[in-house]
Simulated assay, not measured.
Amino acid sequence: MERLTEQPSKYKDLEKKSVEELIRDINREDQLVALAIQKVLPDIAALITAVEKQLKNGGRMFYLGCGSGGRLSVLDAIELPNTYGIEKGIVNVVLAGGVEHLVEALEEKEDDVEEGWETLQEAKISSADIVVGISASGTTPYVLETLKKCREHSIPCGSIVGNPDSPISTYSDYPVEVITGPEFITGSTRMKCGTVQKMLFDMISTTVMVRLGRVKGNRMVNARLTNNKLVDRSTKTLMVEMGLTDYEEAKSLILKCGNVQKAMDFIRSGKNV
């Protein structure tokens, strides 16, 4: 297997470059990311379709990862209950070293070949769920060995990797390989590979939430009212969607119902406020 993510950077003598030169070159490399993702959109669609199917049938999704990719998946998952009003536990993260140690960067846990499967067992993983492994190299032992166990137990798996023909892809039903080549800093996969991962997490979670009916038009009609900004946005959304003109009346209804979708359903029911 060719590990392009570990090949030397094509940029030399970085310490001799000016700020302007450094950011120009980083930006040049970053521009490769979206183009690389575009090449594998069919693979991404297949993965998302599989996730949608499992969740519609009452299953759960588990991101599985280490390092930068694992930590980025935590950021994606924790946003979903507030943004789309889904219950906690529908989208989860199995992070090497534990999500509770998110900020400690326990990189040595990448070599733990048992923890990932043990964590999934504690969550009562089953074939109704789906696991998405994340690894820039495509060889991370923590992810690879966990996916092997998932396959043994007929649990559907997807993966996101940064090298072609990786072992992790071999043990994935829905592999996604986004190839962006050597990093700006040799081997620093928190850069382009991290950007790929963030963009794919956005695609996966956003598309699945839309497909699950958590969005109307282009608006977050199931967002939870956790602060004044969200109350205001939800109030204005309700006014647009239902043709209301009285802001305070709409706000009162939003606060009573809890989100835009419930407020719209209330209005359509013909009940008195």
Score class of each variant (00 low, 15 high):
2 E>K: 15
6 E>V: 01
16 K>L: 11
20 E>S: 14
22 L>M: 13
23 I>C: 12
24 R>W: 06
25 D>Y: 00
27 N>S: 14
28 R>Y: 12
28 R>H: 08
28 R>M: 07
34 A>C: 13
37 I>L: 13
38 Q>G: 07
40 V>D: 07
43 D>E: 15
43 D>Y: 01
49 T>F: 03
54 Q>E: 13
55 L>R: 00
66 C>A: 12
71 R>K: 12
75 L>P: 02
81 P>E: 04
83 T>C: 03
85 G>K: 00
88 K>Q: 05
89 G>M: 01
101 H>I: 00
109 K>C: 10
113 V>C: 14
114 E>I: 12
117 W>I: 02
117 W>D: 13
122 E>G: 12
123 A>E: 14
128 A>I: 06
132 V>Q: 02
137 S>F: 02
138 G>H: 04
140 T>V: 08
142 Y>C: 12
144 L>M: 10
146 T>Y: 15
148 K>M: 14
151 R>G: 09
154 S>M: 06
168 I>M: 07
172 S>N: 03
175 P>N: 01
177 E>I: 09
185 I>K: 00
187 G>W: 03
189 T>R: 07
193 C>L: 04
198 K>F: 09
201 F>H: 15
205 S>K: 00
210 V>M: 15
212 L>H: 01
213 G>E: 08
213 G>R: 12
214 R>L: 05
216 K>W: 02
221 V>G: 02
222 N>Y: 09
225 L>H: 10
227 N>S: 07
227 N>C: 12
230 L>V: 10
231 V>L: 09
247 Y>D: 00
264 M>K: 12
267 I>W: 06
268 R>Q: 15
270 G>K: 12
